[in-house]
Simulated scan of single mutants.
Amino acid sequence: MNKQPFYELTPDTVIDAVESLGYLSDGRIMALNSYENRVYQVGIEEETPLIAKFYRPERWSDEQIKEEHQFMYELVEQELSVVAPMQQANGESLFSFQDFRFSLFERRGGRAPELDDPEHQFQLGRTIGRIHQVGQSRPFIHRPTLDIQSYGIDSADFISREFIPSTLKNAYDSLTSDLLREIDSAFKRAGDVKQIRVHGDCHAGNILWRDDTPHFVDFDDARMAPAVQDVWMFLTGDRQQQQLQIGEVIEGYNEFADFDPRELHLIEALRTLRMMHYAAWIARRWDDPAFPHNFSWFNTERYWGEHLLQLREQFSALQEPVLKLR
């Protein structure tokens, strides 16, 4: 992959790309927080600014991006509040300009949900239940599945081979081997759970809370996965707090979709996989100059020591009894 995939994506290129679709920019442009892709707010003459998202080259195929868009349109058809890409008159939502692929979105405002508020938990559960009601109606064909191989085994192999300091390599290899064995056991205890289309990255930063309603953005990581993948990131604090939170979330969820309690076995397994995958994601992007600049704390002896400590804590969490539904 090009070590500087966005090198030629200058402010002028961004504005020219937006104007190629018939808009007239007022020249104002502001980069928004995004590292995997590049996202900008672009001012439009006498109109509300638009959000332009430029996709990282070689990450997704056109078919995979269009499949993500189609999922969002299905959700909008069911009157769910998701920020879907804008379409031209011919129905197109994925565009090209000077070798860059991009989409446009309406600008939406809001604040992060309060994950310790029972009412927010309940409303989040209801909304995810509605999203999954649509998500389970048919599968993705082109987008990937969240699995132990890609998120766990491949991530650990890459970090061990390319990044972990030699002084920590034996400890890392031993610990990740133990973790992967525990994760595999958790999936086996859960059994043959259903894989459905999910948002895939339901952290608080991808949810805008406005008018007592959660509005979901950024489906870039949408894939096939167990339903609980879109639930566990709402759980914070100690075990007692999480036990209360899961009750609120699933009570709301079950108003629109049936949550399979066996998936509770996967919460800590999926949390661990995300931690391993996140470290490998930064490592795989380390040749992109934006990553050393924005993740300056990464790839230091201190970082890897703390990463090992977090993984050891996850090993303990995987030994704990699963949360229960009330």
Rank of each mutant, 00 (worst) to 15 (best):
P5A: 09
P5C: 09
P5E: 06
F6R: 07
F6N: 10
E8P: 00
E8K: 13
T10C: 04
T10Q: 03
T10E: 02
T10K: 07
P11L: 07
P11Y: 05
D12L: 13
T13D: 01
T13V: 15
V14P: 02
V14A: 03
V14H: 05
I15H: 02
D16P: 00
V18R: 08
V18W: 06
V18N: 06
E19H: 02
S20K: 08
S20H: 09
S20F: 04
S20A: 11
S20Y: 05
L21C: 09
L21S: 08
L21W: 08
G22C: 11
Y23C: 03
Y23L: 13
L24Y: 05
S25H: 05
S25E: 05
S25W: 06
D26N: 15
G27E: 02
G27L: 04
R28W: 00
I29V: 07
M30T: 13
M30E: 15
A31K: 12
L32R: 11
L32S: 04
N33F: 04
S34D: 13
S34C: 08
S34V: 00
Y35W: 11
Y35A: 01
E36P: 05
N37V: 02
R38T: 04
R38H: 04
R38I: 04
R38A: 10
V39Y: 04
V39F: 05
V39T: 15
Y40T: 02
Y40N: 03
Q41F: 00
Q41R: 15
Q41S: 13
Q41D: 03
V42L: 06
V42A: 03
V42K: 06
I44P: 08
E45M: 11
E46K: 14
T48G: 01
T48I: 10
L50C: 05
I51N: 03
A52G: 03
R56G: 00
R56V: 03
R56I: 03
P57V: 08
P57Y: 03
R59K: 13
R59L: 08
R59V: 11
W60Q: 01
W60Y: 09
W60D: 04
W60C: 01
D62C: 00
D62R: 11
D62L: 00
D62M: 00
E63K: 12
Q64F: 02
Q64M: 14
I65C: 00
K66E: 15
K66V: 08
K66Q: 14
K66I: 12
E67G: 06
E67V: 08
E68P: 09
E68I: 06
Q70I: 02
F71E: 08
M72D: 04
Y73M: 13
Y73W: 13
Y73Q: 14
E74K: 15
E74M: 13
E74S: 12
V76H: 06
V76Y: 05
V76M: 13
E77I: 01
E77A: 15
E79R: 15
L80V: 12
L80I: 15
S81K: 12
S81I: 01
V82P: 09
V83K: 01
V83I: 15
A84R: 09
A84Q: 13
A84C: 08
Q87Y: 00
Q88T: 12
Q88F: 01
N90C: 07
G91V: 10
G91R: 10
S93P: 08
S93C: 14
S93K: 09
L94N: 09
L94D: 08
F95H: 15
F95W: 14
F95P: 07
S96H: 11
F97R: 06
